[in-house]
Design a binder for these strands. Sequence first.
DNA 1: AAAATAAGAAACGCATCGTTTCTTAACGGT
DNA 2: ACCGTTAAGAAACGATGCGTTTCTTATTTT
Lengths: 201, 201
Amino acid sequence: MDAIQDKNKNKDPIKSRRRGKELEAAIMQAVREELNERGYFQFTMEGVAERSGTSKAVLYRRWTNRAEIVLAAVRERIPLPLDEIPNHGNLRDDVCDALRSMNRNASELLSKALFGLVMELGTTTIAEVMFPQGRQSRSMSVILQRAIERGELPARLLTEREMNVPIDLARHELMLYNRPMSEETIAQIVDEVFLPLVTRR
Amino acid sequence: MDAIQDKNKNKDPIKSRRRGKELEAAIMQAVREELNERGYFQFTMEGVAERSGTSKAVLYRRWTNRAEIVLAAVRERIPLPLDEIPNHGNLRDDVCDALRSMNRNASELLSKALFGLVMELGTTTIAEVMFPQGRQSRSMSVILQRAIERGELPARLLTEREMNVPIDLARHELMLYNRPMSEETIAQIVDEVFLPLVTRR
DNA sequence: AAAATAAGAAACGCATCGTTTCTTAACGGT
DNA sequence: ACCGTTAAGAAACGATGCGTTTCTTATTTT
């Protein structure tokens, strides 16, 4: 009886079968670890099964194939839209900070899996994987609204295209070079392109 | 004896073994066709051998693995820097035309293979595959120089970052959506971003 | 004409996919 | 507390494709 209670609490001591959410969470974690350590092409279902202490049959009962399980694991970690967008008191620092946060988020897991996913799924695009519910992000409009309120910018309506310039250029850099942008690159995007564009008369 | 004759005849009425450059060109062409028709994940060495009428052994004598043969075939078709950059008599049309030519070049073969290659090679980046000898393209500086000579632009020195804005944004679109840019998108990049940026006072 | 070279056919071992079968642990209703 | 149901986990399967090897023979070179 005590033994049975123990079993339910800890899976390690003796064999205990995890189920449902607990099991699934362990699998998703194993998928991410395998992706990070081995990359998309070394990634195998056997590896995931072994790492998560289960079997392939369990995986294939939940996801139809390799791409689906990777997609599920990656989607769980797609950066959420921030509730709090740091306010540095000036437009330049706010935008630089937004790009730095792209550095932190993007270079982690996504880049390891993104291209492989798009290839293997065949029909999908990067945009669909990265922005399952639409591309426009709230952060730039918040940052720009603040700048207008501060009087840094004229109260002009920017187009989606304009306001996304720094984020698009940053994403472009990240995809091309597959590493975090340097501070110099961030400064170029903001100082040579974005600020001149939005503060022009 | 008849059986032997038959075997030899079955393959080809005239049995001729291609060699060297001729054979290699046929293989490279087969690689590109397989890539285009089947995509990177359906692409197989068997398929290439069959399509080019040779055998896997021949392929592996020349290229060490799947990624290498794809890379070789893709590199042959990486768009050459244009000798003649069309002159439309005004900056806007010149830039739009440059973006349209990216549409034509990029959406063909590269997008089918690029991501797969980067994944499989593991160590490589998109930039390395696309720009084996450096990123800066001559076309934008030619276009801008003409605009200056026409008096459309002040004779100001643009940074690399500035002058690459339309090309970078276009490449970003192509990678994200994996299809040619619409005329609307091209117009947005040029009219809402690039022209305001370079013609500002 | 003989020797050297390289094309092409065929089979191999291996890894991995996705599937299936079977046993049994854990759960849930009574 | 029991018992029937559900789902986990183990193990093997066939199929596919990689990269390799062996062998025959067409073509080139000497």
